[in-house]
Design a protein around this nucleic acid. Structure first.
Lengths: 239, 239
DNA sequence: GCTCGATGTTAGGCTTATCTAACTTTTCAG
DNA sequence: CTGAAAAGTTAGATAAGCCTAACATCGAGC
């Protein structure tokens, strides 16, 4: 991996020289671009979208994109958005790998709730050494998905393709198994857990109302889910 | 705990708003002062000593001491060194607590060697949330010493007083039990482990040579230890 | 095909944390 | 008790990341 800090002759602060080769901020931008472009599949990531994702101002994004482009991590066309280069994608996936390993570790071995682990992992991912990443991976038995059902990238940057559908779009009467839930909203995660909507749960659609409410059964329970929530739950349709 | 970032009207970056209320750098200065003043027992911490401890330049120390003094974390007399205030000590001990809990956790549950955990903990201590600190403390069963024998401060800032003597100063023929080993030098730690010099080991002095070599027995083994090493091992003398 | 709102960039500034160079204070050795 | 070396501080600069205000570009509707 290249070292994004070599532009200066100054000594690289120890804090950022171990885990990945980047300071936390650039790592976060790469993650954001990865998410917005859906891992390279979708369109280019616009300045505004990145700014919204990271809760920074658009000018901050412009500046960082210039920098990341100079470092070869993104392809950036002024006024035309950014995509990750191969190296940018590799770096992003490494950070995502650490994030998801941490989420699973904290959840399984330290008893944190699935609504809590994202926030913790968001900090820890930037200071996790390769050594500790390896130890955690080993302790978990080289897992392939995190507590929310997101796939964990391998060390070499390969990641399982997911072909899941939003629960909201489930066809009338269809049955499905929950595969993945967005990890971004802790409140939503608590709510979903209460209703039994976790990876592995079996659901079937009862009805979808125009007001934006999806009625379904989870196991034997009958629950109602708002559209916002139902768009953040992903399922695999069962025959 | 006070918030050292309130001097600016800007939003506090999320990265430093969770664990302790300080950015990593000020935390490190407080730790350094704590170490140099031996927890408040010894003299004042001089600029040069702090600079050496943190591997930064003396002017950087001057600047940070001014800031920490303004925040009420240290008593600082220009040209006269610094000591921790009650609040500064509390903050330092909180960081030290996290450091030592992490060292023990990484050593016990993730299989890292006692020569590796210091380096890891040095990074992680600054991003550990109170929640995770608590979870780790619980997982370890509220331990009182870290893998090197250093006492772990309690949440309320109390810390067990240690009354140990440097192994180098052990009297002729005396027997002692190893209590603590400096955690700063990974190479030394590997060396000591090889010789069986770990907390709990029984040693007795055979001879001390003018060349700076201490000969002693560890269990049944006969070993020679350089002065530099023997001054970084602390023992409790047995009757 | 022009215009105006949305999107994006440039300009200029701020804080933190660091540095080197130059200057000041303290201390200690003779 | 004095003067030089050691220790410490001030001055001025730099880099990363962020911001707001002002300017530029794009594209969609008419």
């Amino acid at each position: 991996m290249s070292d994004l800090t070599t532009t200066t002759a100054r000594e690289v602060p120890a804090r950022r020289a171990r885990g990945a080769d980047l300071a936390p901020a650039p790592q976060d931008y790469l993650k954001a671009i990865h998410r917005i472009t859906d891992g390279g599949a979708a369109a280019r990531a616009g300045t505004k979208a990145i700014a919204a994702e990271l809760k920074v101002s658009p000018p901050s994004v412009s500046a960082m994109l210039d920098r990341l482009a100079a470092e070869g991590m993104v392809d950036y066309v002024h006024y035309g958005g950014a995509t990750l280069t191969a190296e940018g994608r590799r770096t992003a996936l490494r950070v995502i790998r650490r994030h998801r390993l941490l989420e699973l570790y904290l959840s399984r071995f330290l008893g944190l709730g699935w609504d809590e682990v994202h926030e913790e992992a968001e900090e820890l991912e930037h200071v996790l050494s390769a050594r500790l990443e390896g130890a955690i991976d080993r302790a978990l038995g080289h897992p392939s998905v995190d507590p929310h059902g997101d796939p964990i990238p391998a060390v070499d940057g390969t990641i399982a393709a997911t072909d899941h559908h939003a629960l909201w779009g489930l066809e009338a009467g269809a049955r499905a198994e929950v595969r993945r839930v967005s990890d971004l909203d802790a409140e939503l995660l608590r709510h979903l857990r209460q209703m039994g909507i976790v990876p592995g749960a079996r659901v079937s659609r009862v009805s979808r109302e125009t007001g934006g409410v999806l009625r379904l059964t989870v196991g034997r329970r009958s629950v109602a889910l708002g559209r916002d929530a139902a768009e953040k739950v992903f399922v695999e349709v069962l025959p």
